[in-house]
Amino acid sequence: MTAASNDIAFHDRLLAETQAERASLLSIPIIQEALGGRIRREDYIAFLTQAFHHVRHTVPLLMACGARLPARLEWLRTAVGDYIEEEMGHHEWILDDLAACGADRDASERSQPAEATELMVAYAYDTIARGNPVGFFGMVLVLEGTSVALATRAAETIETSLGLPRNAFTYLRSHGDLDIEHTGFYEQLMNRLDDEDDRRAVIHAAKRFYKLYGDVFRTLRDERAAVQGDAVREAA
C-alpha cells in the first residue's frame, strides 16, 4: 500500500482507481443513444432481456458470497443478508417490464443469455468460488454505480421517445432510486475494509466488471440480430 492510499478512504480510492474503466463504460454508443432518446423499442427489449439474465443471479451470488466470507468479516456477511432481502424478486420486475413492452414474458424467461452476459455472470461466480469472495463487491460497484448514473435518466428519455407505458420501466426507475440509497450503505461497507488483500480484490474485480458489463452493451445489437436470424431460420 502506498502512502497516498493511506491518506484517503478506501471508497474514494476505489472510485479513483476505476475512473478510466467507468468512463469507458459510460461512453459506449448505445448508452449515449439511450440517454439521448435515440434507441428503438427492440434495443430496450434486448437490454431488459440481458438484465433479466444477470439480475436473476443476484441473490444466488450474494448467498454464495456470504457463505464464503471468513469469520473476521462477519459484519460484512450481515450486510450481505440485508442485500439479499432487498434484491429478492427483482428479476420478476424485469419480466413484467418486458411484457409491458409487448415482448413474450414466457419466451424471455426461457431464452438463453448472450455470450457477454453469460461470461459476466460466470466471472462473478468464479470470483467468489476461486478468488477472494470480497471481490464480488467490485461487481456491486459497477452495477449499482452505473444504475445511479444512468437508470432514471434513461427511463425518462426512452419512455418519451418510444411512447411506452410507464409500467414498462419498473426495473430502471426502481433501481435508479433504490441504488441511490444503496450507494451510501456501500460506501460505509467499503470504508470498513481494512485488509489490503480484500481492497485489492474489490479494485481488481471492479475493473474486470466494467469491461464485462460494457461488453453486454457493446454487443447488444449484434446479439439481437443473431436471435432474429435464428428465429427466421427456425420459421423457414
Results as ranks from 00 to 15, higher is better:
Arg72Leu: 09
Glu74Phe: 12
Trp75Pro: 12
Leu76Cys: 09
Arg77Val: 10
Arg77Ile: 13
Thr78Trp: 14
Val80Gln: 00
Val80Asp: 00
Asp82Glu: 15
Asp82Thr: 15
Asp82Tyr: 13
Ile84Leu: 06
Glu85Pro: 03
Glu85Gly: 14
Glu86Lys: 12
Glu86Gln: 13
Glu86Leu: 01
Glu87Trp: 01
Glu87His: 07
Glu87Met: 10
Met88Tyr: 11
Gly89Thr: 11
His90Ser: 06
His90Ile: 11
His91Ile: 07
Glu92Ala: 07
Ile94Gln: 01
Ile94Pro: 01
Leu95Val: 06
Leu95Tyr: 03
Leu95Glu: 06
Asp96Trp: 02
Asp96Tyr: 02
Asp97Val: 07
Asp97Lys: 11
Asp97Met: 09
Leu98Trp: 03
Ala99Val: 08
Ala100His: 01
Cys101Gly: 02
Arg105Lys: 15
Arg105Val: 11
Asp106Gln: 15
Ala107Lys: 13
Ser108Lys: 04
Glu109Arg: 15
Arg110Leu: 13
Ser111Met: 05
Gln112Leu: 15
Pro113Arg: 05
Pro113Gln: 01
Ala114Tyr: 02
Ala114Glu: 01
Glu115Asp: 15
Glu115Gly: 05
Glu115Gln: 11
Ala116Leu: 06
Ala116Trp: 04
Glu118Thr: 07
Met120Pro: 03
Met120Val: 09
Ala122Met: 13
Ala122Glu: 13
Ala124Ile: 01
Ala124Arg: 02
Tyr125Ser: 12
Asp126Thr: 14
Thr127Leu: 01
Ile128Tyr: 00
Ala129Glu: 14
Gly135Gln: 00
Gly135Arg: 03
Phe136His: 07
Phe137Ala: 00
Phe137Glu: 06
Gly138Phe: 05
Gly138Arg: 02
Gly138Ala: 04
Gly138Pro: 00
Met139Phe: 11
